[in-house]
Design a protein around this nucleic acid. Structure first.
Lengths: 288, 288
DNA sequence: TCTAAAATTGAAATTTTATTTCAGAAATTG
DNA sequence: CAATTTCTGAAATAAAATTTCAATTTTAGA
């Protein structure tokens, strides 16, 4: 996946006036674009072919042709998962339910992958790797995700806790110090309890990682590293199904990144030890 | 998926000499084609642009451009399923980790979908719909899945419990009756605690649903309905990541099937739950 | 407020690419 | 073996992509 549309969306803020119009047009008519010529696109944007070309290059493509090709690729992946995404009708068959639920979950994983900023992710896992203690805060289904994370991080010997009780969470937050990390899990990004806890954590000098929906939320503005998950959930009906999947996927990625970091470090130590032994062996004259 | 390459392969037998050469060239260099011009392709086939054009039209595309676009779409889908499924190397890059973890999770969802037997699923959700009380048993990460299920089924007014403590689980099992259902969640299918609880549940006349890996396990042999999840996990390394996703997906399907069974009633309960949570002052609703 | 420099923009020219045309070559048929 | 059909590619044409550059707008400095 090239993340073309994501890149387009991102670019809107950072691009000159005429190109912004082009970007918006692309977002509104992605399917049509792939079979249009530059001149057509330009005409529809009340602009010039040159502007369209410049835009394609400014967001990192070789030219309009290259852009269209990458877009066509992404769209075909997206449409793949769009199949049977329509909301379930009252009389839906079991087969229908099976494929719609699964497709929704899959799509949410892919969408969140596109929203995951590599820099933020790097920040986040570096914080976790360096953390002396990790505290996770979540309420409801987010608490279960937090517990899942605890189970994972404990496997790589991290001191790591998640409490379901608000008072316990708060006491835990008060005991954090500068080298500790608080992880806030809240899809809405506005959960009072969680906001309260990370404020306490911050006041104690701890770093904060937020996992929340792609939007400007109270929690994301408080965090040192923000990881977004796809934000299209129909919260009322869906019982937090897809956001939970996406969030667990983010946890998996963080955990794996940390585990690999340790792996690399361990490997480094091994190599050093090996070198030192080699050296002492050379001096000693006998390698056997 | 347009099946472009399939169509090309099919065409070889039914097409004139020059076009056959073109078809073979396409099959051998599909990735390159998408960024080549007709003249380049023609040159590489010791042929003419006209021949390439004729070929594209003869297999049903509007022209070379159309052909390339469809091919690009298909290739991106193919690469999605082929690429980056290999196990992670020690020095894996962050991008690598992101896509491998996500692809593994996605694949596990699709694979489990294939293992889900519609008859067993029907049995299972009918049991749940008719159940007076539902008890879920799981240990470790399976306990978190059980709790997730409780959160969901409570939304549609099911009396539903999951305890982390073995004695509580056992006491709960003893109190089950003929109209109740016990759900055993255990990827290995051999978890002692869980086996113990469902034996008690059965002795009380309750029905048993098992969610476990695709194999002959102690738990599956005790259950009235068995739902399998994909069984390729290297449990030691992967920290039960993919089986958890697949199991949650099964829970989502069960929950949705039950909710649809009594759609109107369920919707009413959902609305009530939603309103009450809104009232309690949490902006983000029930998803936290 | 004015002016020089810099950035932005699109018209037009140029280049590249796709498509069509058509005449000659090859194959087929009676 | 001619008449006919089918096939083929060179060349012409059309369309699309890209580049160039001068006009315009914006910005910054005096």
């Amino acid at each position: 996946m090239n993340g073309v549309l994501y890149r387009v969306r991102e670019s809107i803020g950072a691009v000159k006036q005429t190109e912004k119009v082009v970007a918006q047009y692309i977002l509104q008519h992605p399917e049509e674009i792939v079979s249009m010529s530059v001149q057509q696109v330009a005409a529809n944007c009340y602009s010039s072919p040159a502007a369209v070309l410049r835009y394609c290059k400014s967001i990192g493509y070789e030219g309009f042709k290259d852009f269209k090709l990458k877009l066509a690729g992404d769209l075909s992946i997206i449409s793949l998962h769009d199949l049977e995404k329509e909301p379930l009708e009252p009389g839906a068959s079991l087969e229908n339910i099976m494929s719609v639920i699964t497709n929704n979950n899959v799509q949410s994983l892919y969408e969140s992958l596109q929203l995951l900023d590599k820099e933020e992710l790097t920040k986040a896992y570096r914080l976790l790797v360096d953390a002396e203690k990790i505290d996770l805060y979540g309420v409801g289904s987010s608490y279960l995700i937090a517990s899942d994370a605890v189970q994972k991080f404990m496997r790589i010997n991290k001191v790591c806790t998640a409490y379901s009780d608000f008072h316990m969470q708060r006491v835990s937050a008060v005991n954090l110090r500068a080298n500790d990390v608080a992880v806030a899990i809240s899809y809405s990004g506005e959960t009072k309890q969680v906001i309260d806890c990370i404020k306490v954590a911050k006041s104690q000098g701890a770093k904060v990682i937020a996992i929340t929906k792609y939007a400007d939320t109270a929690i994301s503005s408080l965090a040192d590293a923000v990881l977004f998950v796809a934000a299209k959930e129909d919260e009322f009906r869906s019982a937090a199904m897809t956001s939970r999947m996406a969030t667990l996927n983010v946890i998996d990625i963080l955990y794996t990144a940390c585990a690999h970091e340790e792996y690399d470090e361990a490997l480094l130590h091994l190599r050093r030890t090996h070198e030192i032994i080699q050296q002492s062996g050379e001096k000693g004259g006998s390698n056997s």
